[in-house]
Design a protein around this nucleic acid. Sequence first.
RNA 1: GUCCCCGUAGCUCAGUCGGAUAGAGCAUCAGAUUCCUAAUCUGAGGGUCAGAGGUUCGAAUCCUCUCGGGGACGCCA
Length: 582
Amino acid sequence: MKPIVAELVASALRALPELAEAADGIDLDGTVERTRDASHGDFACNIAMRLAKPARKKPRDIAAIIVAALGDSATVDKIEIAGPGFINFYLSAQAFHAELERTLAQGASYGRQAPKEGPRINLEFVSANPTGPLHVGHGRGASYGATVGNLLEAAGYPVHREYYVNDAGRQMDILGASVWLRWLEANGVDVAFPLGGYRGEYIRNIADEIDTAGLDVPTAESVARGLPGDSDDDKDAYVDALVARAKALHGEDGFDRIRQQALESIRDEIREDLEEFGVHFDEWFSEQSLTKSNRVDDALAVLEERGMLYKQDGATWFPATQFGDEKDRVVVRENGVKTYFASDIAYHFDKRERGYDHLIDILGADHHGYVTRVRAGLEAMGYEADDLEVKLVQFVTLYRGGERVQMSTRSGQFDTLRQLRAEVGNDAARFYYVSRSNDQHLDFDLDVAKSQSSDNPVYYIQYAHARVASVFRQLGEKALTWDKANGRAQLGLLGEPQEKALMTSMSRYPEVLELAANNRAPQHLVHYLRDLANDFHTYYNAHAFIVDDAGLRDARLYLVSAARVVIANGLGILGVSAPEKM
RNA sequence: GUCCCCGUAGCUCAGUCGGAUAGAGCAUCAGAUUCCUAAUCUGAGGGUCAGAGGUUCGAAUCCUCUCGGGGACGCCA
């Protein structure tokens, strides 16, 4: 509805050359907004105030000129100039009825924009290291990323969802060594488990399952001989030596078999977890594939070519300070090993080279310090700094019975996404994870998320949806049918304040979607749906829908059918189910 | 030390290109309640938008500073 009002103003301005000139460069859509108070009408436009200075006229005088040029429209009942110079629009009942008709006609696509050609968006999220199961924090990144993806698609953009699998480097070696040691253990070979290793129970399970045909079980003595000690001060030496020993005993290929199986097992587990959570990716991008195809070297060559690398102390550096970073960064260490930063630059370069115009990274808040340098890398390779957009997701704290739930792996308490899903269900988890802005800490109350009452916003909203379905079941039980066409014809009978309020709320849906998509802010949709459900329940409590008067009944059923569509669409974007029955 | 986020009702929080009298839920209080669905309903009270300056027709919102809370800062991955 908002675009209709904005277009009215725009056409009035076209008829007023002297004002149109002053309005040049002002986004008219942005001057029209919903009113907070019904006494100000449905929409208000502040263009007159904005034009006061450039046009050198008083705001109220400008408003009068614009209003005079507005002319008649079936959409608008009344236009008033109010306050300092607002132009208030009171929309006709007919305008709201037309919106209801659109809602039912478009159904599942109501609120969505037509697909655009571009910009093509690459959306990377979760990207947790495949060294263990997803934990509760990853769940937030998963929900947020999936929902932002849905929002962007609803806004018409082509979106490619990508998970970057960090399957190369030292962490993978340590994972391999951890599994290897558990395998030895299961074969009666006891070697001290490294402090820097992965200690979770899942490592044992992997060790039990992997195919080790052709690998000889070494003696404890041959494994442990000559290894450095392990200590909290230096967790690296011992575990690194174990990796080297495993490679020596089984050969690179032998160790690689263990490592690769461990990686695949965990990655598959993560993938399954996410699929069950309703979070899908178009691509699982392997870091190994970057290395194997020499794309890290290619990216470094591009930097070299552009004079964006230098040597110092035996290492190769990238002058990140030239792009606003606080210090220069190493890309190749003194020992010849490329840093994680090097493959990260290469990865983002590769994404851009693959044809994505806009890159969005959704990262844990602990990656805060990484943003500047990755962006610097892209810029140094000739791309725009704005091509990369980073959304940081803050931490999650779980509460049960008003108490903070400890989430350390060591204490063995609440930890994994899987456990959370099992406890509160996918719907509640998806919903609560995106209920607050991504850049704010989230307190996740397990008791509320589980409760099946109106205290729980998820149930409150889903219940509104189920109630409409229930009403139609009731209709059937009373051997009545809904005459949709008659309902459309009789919408004029809907004059109750709750009906007007519900129609107004519903008509906001496309605007909320757009706002949420533009700001990558699903919480707007969450709050909107709660308000909408509230309007629906208030209506339901105040008036019976299945009344004797067939015209009124058909009209009310028309209205609530449309409400069902809006609620279902909104929940769909959030990845939450819209049940017919609860 | 540098940087980022946050501070709004008793509590949890909305308030997103600056807009009119700052909102919701919970809690509190007062009423209603044999009703299509049972997880009730209606209404009321409740505020120095952390504080101080600034920008302007207009500031919870933008800028500066102060106070208070949280987090990030590796030749780790």
